[in-house]
Design a protein around this nucleic acid. Sequence first.
DNA 1: ACTAATATTAAACAAGTGTTTGAATTGTGT
DNA 2: ACACAATTCAAACACTTGTTTAATATTAGT
Lengths: 231, 231
Amino acid sequence: MTASTTKSGDHQPKERLLDAAEELFAAKGFTEVSVRELAAAADVNVAAVNYHFQGKENLFHEVITRRFCIQRDRTLDGLQALLDQTEGKPQVDQIIRVLVGEYLDGALSNSFLTMITREMHSGKGGTHVQFFKQMVAPTFAAISRALTAARPSLTPDDLSWIIASIIAQIHHFILRRIKCESCEDVPEAREIMLKAFPALALDQDEYVRLTTDHITRFSTAAIDGLYPEEN
Amino acid sequence: MTASTTKSGDHQPKERLLDAAEELFAAKGFTEVSVRELAAAADVNVAAVNYHFQGKENLFHEVITRRFCIQRDRTLDGLQALLDQTEGKPQVDQIIRVLVGEYLDGALSNSFLTMITREMHSGKGGTHVQFFKQMVAPTFAAISRALTAARPSLTPDDLSWIIASIIAQIHHFILRRIKCESCEDVPEAREIMLKAFPALALDQDEYVRLTTDHITRFSTAAIDGLYPEEN
DNA sequence: ACTAATATTAAACAAGTGTTTGAATTGTGT
DNA sequence: ACACAATTCAAACACTTGTTTAATATTAGT
């Protein structure tokens, strides 16, 4: 979506604002970022925010929507690719691995999950609806389809609980990582975190690898234990 | 008139402020609540916040610390009671059940978890350190001890991953519930949530019961599958 | 009952907020 | 070259923020 009217290597003010906004909103949250701060980071005038977008709120809205779609497509594409490779008969652990891998990697590179979780618990309902319609609904449906293909005996109710537990872990391990990074300059807190969870000391690639392995093995074992294969 | 100057039965201004602050901070977050709003809710003068506490920040600090300790003690006491009942040999599923039950019930009654997760991802490091020292460290140690008593073969590394997955689910199912409640007036979003997770339609007691059951069975099955008992 | 410490109040403070304005600048089509 | 629209800009706007002030009211000690 960035190729509308770009002419040279550098971005135009509108896109510079979008990029700066994404970074700042993710780092500090909506209310903690002032319009003047945004303008300074993007090297534009304060009035640019209200000229190109129609207010701070709308800018945030566009930022978050953009990330929503990118992340959703990663997950959907990954699941579709798995279904193609396995000719419609994927294994449970393969599904979970795709899910966890795509999400972990995408969410840790740009900290959009921080933005979502933060803004999720703030009064506005407008963002909620869009988030659920564009993100939750299609992703949940795709995961359900894939898991049903792997374990036809799973009821819709079973699926809702299983998927919730998997998503829970993905989110938690992402937020742990981000939290730990934000505590780099608070050694006292960081020390306690590392003691309770040593994997946080690893670099990001290694962390993604180990975490993907763990969630996959943990969740697959749970599903195998609770809903054993029938053959 | 009658309730404004009562000192015996009703609370004094300082405590009224603490109570109002806890509710408002949990509902809207630190920056979203103004000092005037706090004062109005507690029916005191604006200056009371700076007189009794030394600024808005300190008030928040006292509010959050109070809840931290209450919740931590619930978990520690519950685990200790289980160890006493089982003469130091608890079952894995018993441990998880205590953990999940105490946390779910406590966190859903007063939405302190919303407060924590929200403020966790905001710049300040001061709250972090206290949170980790008073909450994370002792709770993690207690869970580790209990699980080690149940499965002596678990390594510290195993424990860190297992506990993380359990805590992840607890937090997630709490936040789902709170998120859903906050969407009561946005039927479009609520409908999608219920479709992906029908249990959210239940009343709180039932939700706590079913969720406790699920997390316990899911996690116990995972542990049994990954780290089978040796006897 | 008088005093001194404590508590509460309305009003003002300085600083920051998002947004708007109207002039100046740039770009574009003819 | 000119004209016309789109964009950028410094300045100001109206408003809210957390905090402080100085005066008033309340309480407790002797």
